[in-house]
Design a protein around this nucleic acid. Structure first.
Lengths: 214, 214
DNA sequence: TATTTCGGTGTACACATGTACGCTATTCTA
DNA sequence: TAGAATAGCGTACATGTGTACACCGAAATA
């Protein structure tokens, strides 16, 4: 049951995954990788690939899962830092930026496949981002006592802004990175402030703003 | 000088461009198009392609320019509507959503190539988006009398949110589209409100919020 | 009108790709 | 320990790719 065989299989499976991840770069997308390239990089014969994945797509979806895992691990890391005290927004952005510096290619994978050609990929990436957003939403809702809808809208907007900043960071000179982070922090504050104002209104009045409802 | 020849050339050049645009879809990205496919779709022999573009990349950059043009035309359309009166945010979002419904594949092109593998493509797309943002920034600055930096941050955030919503719209059931638009509008209001608050503070006080400066 | 230019064609080639098939050696199972 | 299962290999093939090359006929130019 220990499975000296199953163990070896798991190992070369990892080699394939790592080979694929290793080939990703700013100038190489997953969809541009060929089965043969990945197999070769992993030190395998092309046809051996099929012993582990039926498809490049199957490998790709595995990579997206992997990325999602890394993303959630990131969240935990941020939480720990926040619980130790400090500005939530500031720490979150800093954490995210560090993530991108260390996992640029994984982040690229997410960004690219989110708007890619495979519905399955798009769904997978969106699922991961939704988790990410919902966790933030929960946090906002109970930390700031916001209306559920407002909290979701804020979380969604914040994630969008941060991901976009991350995307910019990938093409950024290292020296401009701090400025980018500062701008992002300010934008998140706009959103937080706006959400707060509207959240309060929602509680006290009957949501009537500038006579635009209906 | 009229050039019956140059005229014909321009015409088949357009055929190539249109052929490429026509092949784009949710499941087909530009980078997955082959020179031969495009030529065939345009009714040309593969080798004739070279009479017009040295490369598929060159065609691609032309497409991005085309998309930028459509984007700016969109802006003008929105301006006209706004000048006729109505909520700026509401009209802008509506206009953008219509754009996406009618030009889904062009918008997909922008989204994909922005995070694509070609630095030239990324630069081109970002340039178009920057124009878009700066125009909005000007508008905000003079309409709301905001601090220049605050106006830019608001414009940038707003464009990010709207583009992201556009991306979602592409994968959206038609019936959910109205909801998506509503949510986007609310998020833009958050940003506008937040920017306004911070903008005002910037004028009157010395920017000290929650003791987070420094 | 004689000559040049040039958009378009068809042929041809080298190359990379996905994958079907059969084989081997090692591990697992009965 | 005999037999089944299976991870990995090499060969082979059909297909699609970019593009070099020589050629043609119509438009442009002199």
């Amino acid at each position: 049951m220990s499975g000296i065989r199953a163990l070896q299989k798991e190992k070369t499976r990892r080699q394939l995954i790592d080979a694929a991840l290793g080939q990703l770069s700013s100038e190489r997308s997953f969809s541009s990788l060929s089965l043969r390239e990945v197999a070769k990089e992993a030190g395998l014969a092309p046809t051996s690939f099929y012993r582990h994945f039926s498809d490049m797509d199957e490998l790709g979806l595995t990579l997206v899962d992997e990325a999602g895992l890394t993303l959630r691990q990131l969240m935990r890391q941020a939480r720990q830092r926040i619980d130790k005290g400090g500005s939530v927004i500031q720490i979150s952005v800093r954490t995210f930026m560090e993530f991108i510096e260390n996992n640029g290619n994984i982040f690229r994978l997410l960004l690219r496949e989110r708007s890619g050609t495979s519905p399955a990929f798009r769904a997978a990436v969106n699922r991961e981002i939704r988790y990410f957003t919902l966790e933030l939403c929960d946090y906002l809702q109970q930390a700031n006592k916001l209306d559920a809808e407002v909290a979701y809208l804020q979380a969604n907007a914040a994630v969008t802004i941060v991901f976009s900043a991350g995307s910019d960071a990938l093409d950024c000179d290292k020296k401009d990175l701090a400025q980018l982070a500062q701008r992002t922090i300010k934008q998140l504050r706009f959103i937080a402030r706006g959400a707060f104002e509207f959240g309060v209104r929602n509680e006290n009045r009957s949501l009537k703003v500038k006579g635009e409802t209906k």
